[in-house]
């Protein structure tokens, strides 16, 4: 029974057409080159499913935040995801700063998560499995044992006033997107 990887004729025909080793080398070289070609040809096909240049061109948005009052939040759409832009109240800021970060699952100081303490900017996607958490100041009120931040109704993750995971299955804090304050009133996200 011939092996299924080896040309039947190749070993049967060791008489001419070059020495068997030379022939073997030719077969191997050709097969290697063909395989390399196939591999290289696969890339354009795979890459076509990556974000197209028009999608990438929309990678930044500018948001006007002039009208947002303390204790209010606006939601901007960025790359198809909600971005929470919350103007925090002094109590929220204080609560966020006072936490002993060694007790946190994903230890991060509040100062590392904001550029200006008043403005908390988060990607509104739960780090568990991607639902959008709700801001729920009432049920989880600071002082009532709650964390004063977001609650993800999918599987019950709770985030504090800095968007850090405090309770529930989510492994990480809500992410902070890249952003810059273009002016007092306008931020650029992305």
């Amino acid at each position: 029974m011939p092996s299924i990887t080896h040309p039947i004729g190749a070993d049967a025909a060791e008489g001419g057409g070059g020495a068997p080793s030379r022939r073997h080398f030719l077969y191997l070289g050709t097969a290697a080159m063909g395989a390399a070609g196939l591999g290289a040809a696969a890339w354009p096909f795979i890459d076509s499913m990556n974000p197209a240049s028009d999608t990438l061109a929309l990678a930044t948005i500018e948001v006007n935040i002039a009208s947002v009052q303390p204790g209010q939040m606006i939601v901007a759409a960025w790359q198809g995801k909600p971005v929470f832009i919350r103007r925090r109240t002094p109590e929220e800021i204080k609560a966020a700063q006072d936490v002993d970060i060694t007790t946190l699952r994903d230890a991060e100081a509040d100062s590392a998560r904001v550029q200006k303490p008043e403005w908390l900017i988060l990607i509104g996607v739960c780090t568990h499995l991607g639902c959008v958490p709700m801001f729920d100041g009432n049920a989880l009120h600071l002082g009532d044992g709650g964390f004063g931040g977001w609650f993800c109704s999918c599987h019950g993750s709770q985030f504090d006033t800095a968007g850090r995971i405090r309770k529930g299955p989510a492994p990480r804090n809500l992410s902070v997107p890249r952003y810059v304050f273009l002016s007092e009133a306008v931020i650029k996200i992305g």
Binding site: P7, G9, A10, A12, A13, G15, G16, G17, G18, R23, L26, Y27, G29, T30, M33, G34, G37
Partner: peptide, 20 residues
Amino acid sequence: LFLLVLTGLMYGCKRAVWHD
């Protein structure tokens, strides 16, 4: 360029296989 080389090699293989 790649295909030209591969075609050449393939032709060589074909000749070697059919040689006998």
